[in-house]
Amino acid sequence: MRNMEPDQNGAEVPVIELRHVEKHYGDLHVLKDINLRVGKGEVVVIIGPSGSGKSTLCRTINRMETIDAGEILIEGVPLPVEGRELAQLRAQVGMVFQSFNLFSHRTILDNVTLGPTDVLHVPKKEAREEAMRLLARVGVESQAHKVPAQLSGGQQQRVAIARSLAMHPKAILFDEPTSALDPEMIGEVLSVMTELAGEGMTMLVVTHEMNFARRVADRVIFMDAGSIVEENTPDAFFSHPKSQRAKDFLDSIQNH
């Protein structure tokens, strides 16, 4: 964890900024006037009951979901809506999915090299060397020549993190990265994420792992029914939630 919070020293442009973002699914108002800033090196954790819109919010940032109104800025530049510009922007913002989404027809190594070779035109040999370094970093280098189906869920998710790191992203979005994992595999993924946070990666994490939020987050955002209800440091949020909805939510999960 870092002490510095770059968005407080004014001059610095946030890596991710959402201004008055609105989204509807038909009659359902899933994002209501969302305002959010994630500074460089900051780890922001979004929590909230299911259906609160936290996953949707995460997915709007690289336009996996479109928005109806408002603005999304990456390093101060508005998110392009289509074409080459959008692809270039996505290349700079990593994403780790709940269901891993490793390319099932490719080896683990190819999963990590595909982005750099196809998008950044990194020479194959170089991409392979870097991929092996990243796989070693997340502890799955011995699996490099297997296909995803041969790996455990925890291993697959660590590969997914390596795949996203291979693009040298400015920030990584984690969309419930441990929700599809068996309990004993959650720890290995969270420890990779904790290391990343320690190295200064800018991260936006949607999760149900309260201990991770408590230990690693610089800021916790609590969402309910499409709105950001509360935003605070983890200590303040978990010990003194201000809103009744946050209190109810924390009660409901702590009673288990």
Binding site: N62, M95, F97, N101, F103, V119
Partner: peptide
């Protein structure tokens, strides 16, 4: 999710289709 993962890496639609979706 296969398509989304490829798009999230910044791959263009044609690449996504030819290198990720169609081979599967």
């Amino acid at each position: 999710g296969q398509r989304e993962a490829a798009l999230s890496l910044g791959m263009r639609e044609s690449s996504v289709f030819l290198k990720v979706v169609f081979p599967q």
